[in-house]
Structures are given as C-alpha cells and as structure tokens.
Design a protein around this nucleic acid. Structure first.
Lengths: 368, 368
DNA sequence: TTAGCATATGAATCTCCTC
DNA sequence: TGAGGAGATTCATATGCTA
C-alpha cells in the first residue's frame, strides 16, 4: 500500500512505480511537490549498421524502439515536453539531474536552459571500464555527462557539501566522477539470463547524486525509471521515490528489485575509503607538457645508447621506433625494459633519469 | 612576409594573425581551404551586461529584468554566424574542435549539429589543478568540454589513432584527458605583470588535438586566437596557422610569442602510423615468389582448421574456395576474417603466421 | 583448492578501395 | 553510385572451465 503525503495541491503517491507516458503522468501529479528529479532520457543514438569486435563477436547495440527519433526536431520537441512537465512538478527549491551522451546532451542542455532552469554544474561520469572503440576510428567514448540544475537562479537548492567531501577522502568533490559501469551481480537479468535493460546505470552514480543533492525524506522522481536504479538507491538512503516507466517488462523487474531493497541503518551510511594506487603517467604526457622537448636526446643509463624524442611520445634510435620501453629493450636485446629508469635526459649539465619527471607529474596529480 | 598557398578559389594567407571580426575575415578567405578549425569562443553568457554581440557591442542588460531568453537568443545567433563561416571555410574532409563550459557548450553543440556538423567525440579536459569552489555551494568546476566534429557524417576526417595510442602508453586514447591548467612560465604576462589573457589554454591540450587530428603541413585556423596557443603549437608541430583576433592587445602578445617559436625537427614530427598506411601485398605474391609452395598446408591459428594453397593464390578447404580471408571467414562462420593473422604455415617445425612472410616482402619493398 | 586460461560483454553515431 | 572484397581492430571485468 502506497504511502501518501499531503501537499498544497493534492495527494502525491510515494514509493510507487507508475505506468504510461511520463508527461501525462507528471501533469497529473500536484505541482511544486517534488524535491528532486533524476532523468535518464533516451539518447537518440542514431546507430546505422552492425558493429563487430576484433574477435568477430557482435556488439549488442541499443536499437530499442524507444531510442528512435526521426530528427533533431522531434527529439527537441520530446525534450521540451517532458522538461516542462518536470519543471511544473518541482518545488521552487527543487533540482533536476539529466544524464546523456554527446548524441543528445547538447539538445537537452539547451532545452533545459530555455525552459528557465539554472545550471549548477555539469558533471562528467568517467567510466573506469568503458567499451573501447573497436575500429580505431575515434577516441574511446569513456564518459557520459550529467547536468545538475536548479529551478531558477535564485533557488535555494540542496547541496550537502561536507557529505560529498567525506565521500571524496576529505577533498572537495569535483565535477568529474570516476565510477565503473554497471555489470556483474548488480546488472539485472531477465528470465532468459539476458540483461533486463540495455542501459542500466550503476547504483554508485545515483548514490553520489542523492547524497549530494537530497535530504532524508525528500521525494525523488524519475520519469524514465527503467529497472529502477533511482528508486533502489533512494529507498536505501531513506528518500521517497516515484518512478514512471512505460514498458511493462522494465516495471516488472523494478518492482521485484525494489521489494528486496532495505533501508540502510543510519550508521551504515558511512562510506569506506581505500588507498588509491599510484596514478599511471604516460611518457607522452611529459612531451605534451613540455617537460621534455620534442627532438630532445635521451641517453641510456649505461651511456651506450641514445635516442630522440618524437612528438607523439615515442622514441627513435637508428632504425628502431617505439615506446621508451620498446626502444630500450630493442637496443639492449632484452625481452623487456623499464624505460622510466633506463633513459636519462640532460638537465643543468647532468644526465638524470626521466623517472624524475614522472614523479613531478604525480606530485601535481596527488590530492592536497 | 606571409607565405601564401595557391588554392582552387584564391589565395590563403598562411602563418598570419588577422585582425577584425572573425565572421567577416573567414568569409573573405577561399571556401573549402582549411584542414582544421580550433575555436575557443567567448562564453560570458551569464555575466550580466557582458554579453558580446558579433560586432563586439555589448548587450544592454536591464538589471532587474534581465531577459534570459533574449540573451540566449543573441548568443545562439552569434554561434550560428561564426559556425556558418567556419563551415564554409573547411575542406570537405576537414574537422572542427570547439571548447567551452556548461555556460555555453550546450548552445554551441546544438548549433554545431544544426549546421550539419557530425560529432565524432565530446572530449573532457579534466583539469588536474582547478580552482576550488571557495563558497562550497557547488562542485569544483574541474573540467571543460571540447567537441570534435567532422563536416559531414560521410567525411574522411584525419585521425592519427596510433599516434594518440602511443601518447597514452600503448592504450587507446580515451575521451577524458587529464591535463593541468596553463600557469607558471607558460602563462603569458602583459607589461604590468598581469595575465595577458583571462582564459589562456595550455599548449599540452593543443598538442594532443593537433597530433590527433592533423597532418604535417595542414592549415589550422583559430577564429578566436587570443594570445595564440593554437598558432604556437601548430608552428612547433609543422602545421600552418591562421589566427583571427579582434583585440589589438592580444594580437601583440601573440605576435611576439609566435616569433620566438621554432619548429621541431622534421623526423621528430613523424608519428606512429597504422598498418592501413603500409603498402598492400597480395597473398598470391607469396606463392609467385616461392615463399609458400603450391599445395602447402595452412592451419588456422586456433588449430581447428586447415587449407591448401592453390597456384592462383587462393585456398581450398573441403568445399570452400577463395581468398585467405574468405575461406577463414567461412570456416569460422564469421562475418569477416583477416587471413594474414588467421593462417599459419610450417617453418622449421613450427607453425607461424603467414603475416611474417608479408612483412618480409614489405621489408624488401621499403627504401633502404 | 587454486592458479591460469578462455570466453563473454558493455548507451557505439566504428573502413576503404576498386570496379 | 553501389556492390563486393581486402583486411584492420579492443580494454576492463566477470565468469567459467581445466589442469
């Protein structure tokens, strides 16, 4: 039985999943009644042919009917409509999060601004394990973008600065979040053992969103509920959720998922932290950053070999080209070589290991 | 004295800084003549009263009734105008990069798509040393967004995949780039010792952009040249630059900066190339040259299949005949197959890939 | 039991040349 | 201009099988 909360303009059903069209559903709810909206709308990917991995396996593309739009115009119309309904529903001090990729996020961001929302941050979800670009034709698409916006430029939105700082090992939370994609046990499966939803978001992402921008007891609405990640995290964190989902199959999975979720005890909300590994530094970074000049000469530690630095961070020595490790190994006739300790460069008259420059970069990357 | 390059439609001034309005300047240059455009447009969208029209006049903001819609409208008009001029100027296989923050990037991204550009990636510049958010009211704004787009969805844009992979320690380059902001010695100062430009970009950022998406000798245009970071990196990397900058003070700093830049040695500018650039070798050549005997047996790398070499350079395996690729694909039930790496032949008791023989032929073909 | 190897897969706008 | 053929191309995880 759904809890109901009395509002100025009527009743708001809480902790429920509603079916049907999200615009109609939102318009049927009382205005100015929701604290936060998290929206993961269709991305309008516009995929054409099939794509195979180098091992010839086929990539399971997002080709679902709900992601197909005829044009940017029809996608913009769709965005304006659901954003208007979302805006009506939000309390004056409420906020909205929208997630997307380069296919749609510029459209959505513009529509959001046109509707009068006030952008607070754009937040980059940097995926620690994205799918690579198999054909080597573009950069690995390794991130998605979220927009966090208040209802107006004067709204007093919720921002739990200290909680996010604590989540981030005592350092102010930045606008780029490194989190793994949703897979393994967390990834919901259907009766056939296939993924229940093509684009399930990781709970860690919603955890950070809700910890940072809601209070316990707040009402969080997700108009594109899918398999209910927003609801699951909200319930666990002691927030109320309202999900809207058109597809019966997704609703069914979400209902089952949510029934099994238990709210955290307050003391369980503390986050554990882990020691971070030494960040890896690419040799090319030294070149890009100007710490090593393109064309500079490097010498081996034993003084027997030399090489020249190229613009892409590779070395050339006589007829050998490659990474600092490859060229070192080739010149020494060795199976492998740690180029960082093998090569030296000239600084103030002395030949010193290039590893010193790596340490310098790492020092800059480290938290204060 | 500026170099000039003869084009179909007229002369293109190279390695120069042009003054005046960028739209008018671009429209005065020959169409389809530029390989790459890097643009860092102004985005003072929400600094009330500081919005610039294309003619550099300021929009009069009414303090109490500031009209967001009008402001976005005039910014969009500005974006459409300079993007149209940029598009005209680009070669059909040229590309554009635009950088911005959440204040303007959604507007620019939408305008870019509306103008017909085809987005290839959005790239996040993740600042390793951003300015913190002092008031603790939002997340640290620790990144900026770049959009990389081709002139059309069928364009053959330049992408030096192997060079970027080499810059990234042998791992495919991702869409998130960690680089420090421009400060220290690199940050240009004016005569008073103040920073010469408020948003000077780091050369490392441009290094990666130009290494990844241009070739030596390409023409790179920057319509918002500022103090000339694009030109500085282009010159060093052996690319031509054209800068357009309206402010005399910035031009002056840029001129001095560029005069001091020296180009890297030519051999340092060579970057790692892909196998696609290697000369093509027909499998039949191996047979003709006697490197593989007619009737010799080949085995698949996984050991599951075998085939026999025929006199015309095709293979036969049971009822399947055809090229090394076709037979491999048929036997594996795969949509395609690279026969060079799929098939092995027996040499001195070991089964080794036939690709070794191709490499042998290529070595003989290569200049000494 | 476990280490090691093979296999599976994730919001993807993913080729190019010749006839 | 379209069809067909050559042949280039992947990173981080999770799971399951084998020795």
């Amino acid at each position: 039985m759904a809890i109901r909360q009395k509002n100025d303009t009527g009743d708001l059903p809480l902790d429920v999943i509603l079916d049907g069209d999200c615009v109609a559903r939102m318009n049927a709810l009382p205005e100015n009644s929701v604290d936060l909206i998290f929206a993961d709308p269709p991305y309008n990917l516009q995929l054409k042919g099939e794509l195979h991995r180098p091992d010839n396996s086929k990539v399971d593309a997002v080709d679902d009917h709900w992601d197909r739009f005829n044009s940017f115009n029809s996608y913009d119309k769709f965005s304006r409509e659901w954003l208007a309904a979302a805006r009506r529903l939000l309390k004056p001090n409420g906020a909205i999060w929208v997630i997307g990729s380069y296919h749609n996020i510029f459209r959505v961001g513009s529509a959001l601004q046109d509707a009068g929302f006030w952008i607070l941050n754009d937040v980059v979800w940097r995926k620690s394990n994205p799918m690579p670009n198999f054909r080597g034709k573009r950069l690995t698409n390794a991130h998605e973008t979220m927009i966090w916006a208040a209802k107006s430029d004067t709204a007093k939105y919720t921002f739990n600065y200290e909680a996010l700082k604590a989540l981030n090992e005592g350092v102010q939370m930045r606008s780029d979040w490194v989190l793994p994609i949703c897979n393994g046990n967390e990834r919901l499966k259907d009766d056939n053992g296939d993924k229940a939803h093509p684009t399930q978001k990781p709970e860690s992402l919603l955890h950070r969103v809700l910890i940072g921008s809601t209070k316990p007891g707040d009402v969080v609405l997700d108009p594109f509920f899918g398999t209910g990640t927003t609801g699951a995290v909200a319930k666990r964190l002691g927030r109320h959720y309202i999900g809207i989902e058109r597809e019966a199959a997704y609703r069914k999975v979400a209902e089952k998922r949510l029934a099994a979720i238990k709210r955290y005890d307050r003391d369980a909300l503390e986050v554990s932290t882990s020691k971070r590994a030494e960040p890896r530094v690419a040799f090319g970074t030294l070149v890009e950053r100007g710490l090593l000049r393109v064309g500079a000469e490097l010498r081996s530690l034993n003084g027997r070999h030399k090489a020249k630095v190229r613009a892409d961070g590779t070395l050339v020595a006589f007829d050998t080209k490659g990474s600092i490790h490859q060229v070192g190994a080739a010149l020494e006739g060795a199976p492998s070589c740690n180029g960082w300790t093998y090569w030296t460069f000239k600084r103030s008259g002395d030949w010193v290991p290039i590893d010193l420059l790596r340490q310098q970069i790492r020092a800059e990357m480290a938290p204060a």
